[in-house]
Amino acid sequence: MTEELLRVEGLEAGYGAYKVLHGVSFDLSNGQNIGFFGPNGHGKTTLFETISGLIRQTAGKIIFDGTDITNASSDAIVEMGLVHVAQGNTLFPDMTVMEVLQLGAFPKRSRQKLRSNLDRAFSIFPRLTARRSSKCKTLSGGERQMLNLATGLMACPRLLILDEPTLGLSPRLKEELVRPISDIENSGVSLILVEQDLEFLLLLVQRLLLLNHGRITKRIDRQSEQVSHQEIMEEYFGVAVTHES
């Protein structure tokens, strides 16, 4: 196993003539976690949909665990262990929680581990246990997000991309997600966490990348630099944030 898990080089992508990503480069070592933040509409979701093979890149390279996956199909990418939990995924409205979890183990490499992964999913998200026979469309926003994360885990990921797991959740529910996500981190799965909620991000990752207008404009390593929330917000908004009262 190589030390480097993911390397993205000069990635460009978009929709038809409209270019969203203008040369994005970053890398991630095994066991490392990074956080992406940045305003809406600046390419976060496009970046990860390109990495997971949903959108074709127009330039650049994606290397996962030493293999060039730039032109690989989405199913081949999942099979390799790069699993993307999409933003606001409504999953399958007419399927039960249990069925969705079983489908999460669709990749061949995870099928033998179905039992143990189910146990792990239910122990990380006990609330899903009671709802195992409920259809997805009857789940609350928080439950659906838990199911999304649990489903991602079912595939035995080596790198898990979580795109805005707190989208639309109340502060209390957001708080409830911190523990399971750090459980996932501690189980040895590398994590890319995409968030608008900086507070949430700072609780879970040490390295932060700011994506602005389809480019990475700031890299912050909180282990080597002492960067405050305030400084990041200034970087984010470009002005000092002060509370006038």
Binding site: S74, N89, D94, L103
Partner: peptide
Amino acid sequence: RAVGQNQKAAKLMGI
């Protein structure tokens, strides 16, 4: 059935 209900989610599950 999954493909019929949500193609994108199905793709992300490796289908």
